[in-house]
């Protein structure tokens, strides 16, 4: 980000004042302005999509969220009532509580795993580690729907191997989607799906470090453990912040995996399990689009607050968006 900011900060050399400026400067200023308009032409196609599919839906959702639809009363303006209702709604509260606690536990675990793999893969280069890198990354190429289904099968008492494995030691298998276990059952699915992707990003950042830094550190007597934690990790910290932000946003919007596993969870995963599932069901099971919009917007507010709290605490790391 530092670069982008620097680029933004360095304004074009202004040819100020018509009085002192020669005709060459005038012309160059004109050219500069004309070129500026060409800049907009390059951005215009994206800007249109941005306005139509991001700004407009947001504004429209906000508009919808200010109205309520009653059977007898029709659609009426109710101001922030939907938001008051949302933040007092036990279903929404429970869902937000779940995704936040899920993020707090999941993301550090996922990060430690992917960082550890990336450090090992960066330190050792053989055929085997190259193979390992590809295999660990492979789940990223599997759609989340399919990943969740596969784990659902593996968890299943009918199809899965758990029953067999546990019967070897004479125990009965736990059901990973029971109310007590569902937190870890889902955590496993998400870690499996994303750890490899995060690993590859960290790995790419590690490969970008100039190796002469390690030489210098070794001459100074640093052991490889110190090289890893005092040099490598700080140098890739902006990559870590970037993927933490993405993991945070993704986790708070948790939808696909619990939605797919709903049917095989024997009722553990309820229609208000996460805020997004709740909003989806409000919209498409109850046709309550006003309230669903308010829920979507309220979730957006929660995400924004969480991301800003996170970026505030990592601001010295100088990462993305800081």
């Amino acid at each position: 980000m530092a670069n982008a900011d620097a680029a933004l900060a360095s304004k074009p050399v202004r040819t100020t004042g018509p009085s002192g400026a020669g005709s060459y400067k005038k012309r160059s200023k004109l050219r500069e302005q004309r070129r500026g308009r060409v800049g907009w032409l390059f951005i215009a196609p994206f800007a249109v999509v941005f306005v139509v599919f991001l700004v407009a839906p947001l504004l429209y959702a906000f508009y919808l969220s200010l109205y309520s639809k009653g059977l007898a009363t029709g659609t009426t303006f109710t101001g922030i009532d939907n938001y008051v209702k949302a933040f007092q709604d036990p279903s929404f509260q429970k869902g937000v509580g779940f995704v936040i606690s899920f993020a707090v536990v999941l993301i550090p675990v996922q990060m430690i795993i992917s960082l550890a793999i990336a450090l090992v893969l960066d330190a050792i280069t053989t055929m085997f580690t190259r193979f390992a890198r590809l295999m660990i990354f492979l789940p990223y190429a599997v759609p989340a729907v399919i990943g969740a289904l596969m784990w659902g099968f593996l968890y299943s008492p009918t199809f899965g191997p758990l029953q067999q494995i546990f019967s070897l030691v004479g125990a009965s298998a736990p059901f990973p989607l029971s109310p007590d276990n569902v937190f870890f059952g889902l955590m496993n699915v998400v870690t499996w799906q994303w750890a490899g992707y995060y690993m590859i990003i960290i790995y790419a950042a590690l490969r970008g470090i100039d190796p002469t830094i390690y030489e210098a550190a070794k001459i100074d007597g640093a052991n490889s453990w110190q090289v890893a934690f005092r040099i490598k990790v700080p140098l890739v910290s902006s990559a870590l912040v970037l993927i933490l932000v993405f993991a945070l946003i993704g986790t708070l919007q948790f939808f696909t995996e619990p939605k797919i596993l709903t049917l095989v969870s024997n009722g553990t995963i309820t229609p208000d399990f996460t805020p997004n599932i709740y909003a989806y069901n409000q919209a498409f099971s109850y046709s309550n689009f006003n309230y669903a919009s308010a829920l979507s917007f309220a979730l957006g507010i929660v995400v924004f607050i969480c991301v800003y709290i996170f970026l505030f605490f990592t601001r010295k790391r100088g990462g993305f968006l800081s």
Binding site: L8, F53, L54, Y60, A61, I249, Y280, A292, S296, G300
Partner: peptide, 22 residues
């Protein structure tokens, strides 16, 4: 560009329901 960077943080699934209505 600042708006664009901020928008990276907008949860895209939160946009889906309003986009559907639109």
């Amino acid at each position: 560009f600042s708006v664009l960077l901020g928008s990276v943080m907008v949860p895209l699934t939160a946009l889906v329901i309003p986009t559907f209505v639109l």
